[in-house]
């Protein structure tokens, strides 16, 4: 299992692996928002938490189709299916690798981009914490979507269509937690809900992803 995780991370950071694309996308989304809504810092600071969450979610989304598609095309998935590793573990590890190479950098970059959006000082902690709790869930849900569309030639758009509704609860609780943090309110409830959803997706979705992968390999 460690071997698969390390291989996926190594593949992502090597040339052509797409590491940093999500991060760049995140940066661009965040930079474009002030052009769209105007430069008033009080307006920006009010919507900063939401923008950062939407940006992180979209950045996560654009890299989802790489989770299984490459392994599908070059036959690695066939070989992994006959390996001693259970398919559930493969799905979970792939989701984890996606989080390490996409979600984690987004979490780390969010405070820097928060400066651009005049995020109030007390909002940084809750924002980073909410992303840290939420993005693993986004990766696991995304892995499920990627598994569903792996056999399709142009599955990218369909993948977004399937995954976005599944992202709604995570986005709502994550953004709400960050927003309450910015307003200086108590954010325990959304934090617990967010953590619960992420834990639930990590515990259960690999089974669905594995079932879907087996169907697609048939």
């Amino acid at each position: 299992m460690k071997a698969l995780l390390l291989r996926d991370i190594r593949l992502a950071v090597r040339a052509g692996g797409g590491f940093g694309l999500g991060l760049a996308f995140f940066l661009i989304v965040v930079v474009l928002v002030p052009f769209g809504v105007g430069p008033q810092s009080e307006l920006l600071s009010r919507i900063a938490a939401g923008i950062l969450w939407i940006g992180a979610l979209l950045a996560c989304l654009v890299s989802l189709d790489r989770i299984f598609a490459l392994d599908w095309e070059d036959g690695s998935l066939d070989l992994l299916a006959t390996a001693p590793l259970p398919m559930e573990a493969v799905a979970a590890i792939k989701g984890l690798a996606h989080w390490v190479t996409t979600g984690l950098p987004l979490v780390l970059a969010a405070p820097v981009l928060g400066v651009l959006l005049s995020l109030p000082a007390q909002g940084y902690g809750p924002l980073v914490l909410s992303l840290l709790l939420g993005t693993p869930g986004l990766s696991m849900i995304g892995a499920f979507g990627a598994a569903l569309t792996v056999g399709l030639r142009r599955g990218g758009l369909l993948l977004s269509l399937l995954v976005l509704p599944l992202y709604v609860p995570t986005l709502i609780f994550g953004a709400e937690m960050a927003r309450r943090g910015v307003d200086g309110q108590d954010y325990t409830t959304p934090m617990l809900m967010l953590a619960g959803i992420t834990c639930g997706t990590i515990a259960l979705l690999p089974f669905a992803s594995a079932a879907v992968l087996r169907v697609n390999l048939r």
Binding site: L148, V168, L205, A208
Partner: peptide, 21 residues
């Protein structure tokens, strides 16, 4: 079928999330 089953869980979650939000 699997999408429908997984989606139902998330639809229910969304319902409560939306009420909260």
């Amino acid at each position: 079928s699997i999408l429908c089953i997984v989606g139902s869980v998330f639809a229910l979650l969304s319902r409560y999330a939306v009420l909260f939000w």
